[in-house]
Design a protein around this nucleic acid. Structure first.
Lengths: 144, 144
DNA sequence: CATTTAACTTGTGAAATGCAAGTGAAATAT
DNA sequence: ATATTTCACTTGCATTTCACAAGTTAAATG
């Protein structure tokens, strides 16, 4: 499973590998949109609250795909659309996102209290739900 | 505990709050150096494998302090040195770092196998050790 | 008292980001 | 069938951030 990076890493540290793939202002938000909201298309990501620019979104989707975290395929029912899906590697990030949400909820004033309550109550179940929903080769998820 | 951000957030989402505080190429590495290696001074951070530039390091330490994740105080035994310590909020990030390390270890070829082994074997104990080592108002940690 | 050390700041060019506008293929409406 | 709209981008450009090298200042050390 463990693959070599396409560009050489600054260091062999595993945390550094994560930071090099995810350490920017948008990548994790795109993954949140997929895990929490079931977003799958360019337009859906664009509609997110943080208002990513189109060129940045295109770049981040490309980079996440190169990192093997997401994959894309044409929508069979609409030739204009690309459908973006989480790979196993991407699904595996759910615990990271969960801990980041819980940390912020503990120390900052935030919204999305429903998500926070369900994570506090049963983190493993929330993660299992994301896993099940996105199990590869399966159909689009729906909003929770 | 939950404080208002000094600058307005792009959105009220908790993950966005985390990303705005930690979503860059260096902040999490500085926290790793504190948690894993017990680093506490500017010079120690500079010595890290990824080779951060001095101006970036100064900026990140300032931002982490403004976010309440670290705190600084002059070294009583050397007036030139600042000592940087993790706050409770910073210590609370240990599970986030742990999950990021475990994720990278699962999907990338990385070094630091000893840390990975101990995290795989007993994540909670590793986190508890970080907590204990950095408990506030206590003395400098030593390398593990 | 001269030198070294620690923690920075400053200057400069390169790269990344953000915004607005434009493009082309495919779908939908007329 | 053709005109319009939608979708997923790309391009151009101004602004911000980053990275590298060099310089500064106060405190410690020889």
């Amino acid at each position: 499973m463990a693959k070599k990076p396409l560009i050489p890493r600054r260091s062999p540290c595993p945390l550094n590998a994560s930071v090099e793939m995810l350490g920017d202002r948008w990548s994790l938000l795109i993954l949140r949109d997929m895990m929490v909201w079931g977003f799958q298309t360019f337009k859906e990501f664009l509609g997110s609250h943080e208002r990513i620019a189109t060129n940045i979104l295109a770049d981040r989707l490309r980079r996440l795909e190169k990192s093997g975290i997401i994959a894309s395929k044409p929508d069979p029912s609409d030739g204009r659309k690309q459908i973006y899906v989480l790979t196993a590697k991407g699904i595996d990030l759910a615990p990271v996102l969960a801990e980041m949400v819980l940390w912020a909820a503990r120390h900052e004033k935030t919204g999305n209290q429903q998500l926070i309550r369900s994570l506090k109550g049963n983190k493993e179940q929330v993660i299992a739900h994301i896993r099940k929903t996105w199990a590869e080769q399966q159909n689009p998820p729906r909003k929770p």
